[in-house]
Computed example of a mutant assay.
Amino acid sequence: MVRRIGLFGGTFDPIHIGHLRSALEVAELLGLDELRLIPGARPPHRGEPQVSARQRLAMVELAVKDVECLKVDDIEFRRERPSYTIETLEALRDELGPDVQLLLMLGWDAFCGLPGWHRWKELLELCHILVLQRPDADSEPPQVLCDLIAARTQADPHDLAGPAGQITYIWQTPLAVSATQIRGLIAAGKSVRFLVPDAVLAYIERYGLYRATT
Rank of each mutant, 00 (worst) to 15 (best):
T213P: 00
K71H: 03
P14I: 04
Q172T: 05
H128T: 14
Y210D: 09
L195A: 09
A150V: 10
F12K: 10
Y84M: 13
V200E: 07
L102F: 02
E76N: 04
R4G: 09
V51E: 03
L24G: 00
A23S: 13
I167H: 02
V177L: 12
I129E: 04
K121E: 14
G189C: 08
F12P: 07
F111C: 12
G165W: 01
V60I: 08
L70H: 02
R46V: 05
S22V: 11
S191D: 05
D94Y: 00
A161Y: 00
Q101G: 08
L130N: 06
P142C: 06
Q101E: 15
K121L: 04
L89M: 06
L123C: 11
K190W: 03
T85C: 13
A137L: 03
I17F: 07
Q166S: 14
R79V: 11
G47N: 15
G184D: 05
D198G: 09
A212F: 01
M105C: 08
V200A: 10
P98K: 11
C69F: 00
A27T: 02
A161I: 08
P115T: 06
T213L: 14
F194M: 09
C112G: 07
T168R: 11
H118R: 15
A23Y: 02
R78V: 07
E34I: 09
E25C: 11
R193F: 04
P14Q: 06
R134Q: 05
D33R: 12
E61S: 14
Y210A: 14
Q181C: 00
Q166G: 08
H16I: 10
L89E: 09
D147V: 06
I5N: 02
L130D: 01
Y210W: 11
L126Y: 06
A58L: 01
L35Q: 01
L104M: 10
R81M: 05
K71A: 07
L209V: 09
R134P: 07
I17K: 03
W120P: 09
V67L: 14
W117G: 14
L32C: 06
P135T: 06
A53P: 11
A187P: 07
P44M: 11
R56E: 13
G6P: 04
S178G: 03
D73T: 06
E87S: 08
A212Q: 11
R54I: 12
I204F: 04
R42P: 05
L70P: 03
A187K: 10
D109R: 05
C69N: 01
